[in-house]
Design a protein around this nucleic acid. Sequence first.
DNA 1: TCAACTGCTTGCTTTTTGCAACTGGTTTAA
DNA 2: TTAAACCAGTTGCAAAAAGCAAGCAGTTGA
Lengths: 172, 172
Amino acid sequence: MNEAYRSGCPINLTLEVLGDRWSLIVIRDIMFGNRRHFRELLQNSEESIASNILADRLKRLVERGLLSREDDPSHKQKGIYSLTEMSIRLVPIFAEMGAWGRRFMPVSEELSIRAQLLEEGGRPLWEDFMEELRVLHLHAPRDPAKPSVFDRLRAAYLEVVARNAAAADAAE
Amino acid sequence: MNEAYRSGCPINLTLEVLGDRWSLIVIRDIMFGNRRHFRELLQNSEESIASNILADRLKRLVERGLLSREDDPSHKQKGIYSLTEMSIRLVPIFAEMGAWGRRFMPVSEELSIRAQLLEEGGRPLWEDFMEELRVLHLHAPRDPAKPSVFDRLRAAYLEVVARNAAAADAAE
DNA sequence: TCAACTGCTTGCTTTTTGCAACTGGTTTAA
DNA sequence: TTAAACCAGTTGCAAAAAGCAAGCAGTTGA
């Protein structure tokens, strides 16, 4: 029982849970990449996370309520990691971090198009996206009339990838 | 020359600069506590940062453009640390982190009243606050008609402190 | 002149990160 | 039926970072 936090400041407490170089990366990949299995997170990792770090982070995030893990009925060894309400509510933080990174850091076009859409869409879009994540991860009922933010983000990303690939081909 | 970032993703790049347990704490204390000297940051630290870590973070943050340092004309040894436009633009991230921490972590009332005001004030308040930080840290011209967000945050904080101290006295 | 204060630095131990190889079990396809 | 590929991690070790306590030279104010 050593739940001794450094202080009761909300910024500090958020940092104590998420303030390392990998936790938010893992959540980002689950949230925006819809990667739900260990191998998916490991092998598609843009930043090349090591397997022991990934295992440790998944464990910690589950312990702290930011992820949940259940067995995949289709495969005895597979586990499915899902977001929780706690991590779904990180969407505004991701959106603000994406906006800040886009403004001040040397981002690549491909990997920042989604951040751009999220920034331009503002809070209403974030709310739609969070509602969608609840459907996907918390088995919440889905409103079939609403177009998917997730699909829009992915379509925009794939479009940039395709355009850049075509431009690269043309340049050869 | 090893500016080899892990990836060009804006979330990742933000994390590579700020994703550790102390950088944002230091910036928070300069931003919300208006601590501008080394000793102020060290001795008033709610989370008890060690002096070598503080020295290292200040150096890194200056190198990366998140802080600037100038000599204090009133004392040959004193340095004054200031925010830059880059760190002033972290206000929305701090506001969202504060809101998240308040919702999901065991925050103390005293240390979260400012986060509450920032959350309730929303983006217009954040903009006012950023403009004020520019006056304070970037020597930007000040609009004398505007009431200070900084003062309002501090007043709210001191009020909670005083109220709780009075309640503690009464309980004895 | 001397105590207190200034921004750090040093030396040391503990903890975390990172790398690479490996494990035991499961599924798939020949 | 059996071998190859896939599954979620583990293990052992080296390197880097964090944390702690003490110390330092220069500066200031009484």
